[in-house]
């Protein structure tokens, strides 16, 4: 599983990355977490804003810090 956190480095993006890492650790799943900060790379995902979370190529959340429960639901599907 690959989880991308899109964001140039603002506090909300950093918080999102932190929660994603915590959830992955808690669930004990094997996941590669990638922080994408390059604006052009972010733009390729077609998101309106950041932070955004992408799980295995599918954008799950845009412009907000997702909850741990939301992230769990994306990972456990």
């Amino acid at each position: 599983m690959e989880i991308k956190v899109l964001g140039p480095g603002c506090p909300k993006c950093q918080k999102t990355e932190k929660i994603v890492k915590e959830v992955v650790s808690e669930l004990g799943v094997s996941a590669k977490i990638v922080k994408v900060t390059d604006t052009m790379e972010i733009a390729k995902h077609g998101v309106f804003g950041t932070p955004a979370v992408v799980v295995d190529g599918e954008v799950k959340s845009v412009g907000k810090i997702p909850s741990a429960d939301e992230i769990k639901s994306w990972i456990q599907k």
């Binding site: 077609g46 955004a52 954008v59």
Partner: peptide, 24 residues
């Protein structure tokens, strides 16, 4: 505001669809 790509939503590309769902 900010113009956004309706075509991306119509194409069901997840970044565009999720952006439209999540935007306040």
């Amino acid at each position: 505001g900010k113009i956004f790509c309706l075509a991306g939503v119509g194409g069901h590309l997840s970044g565009f669809v999720q952006s439209a769902r999540d935007v306040p």
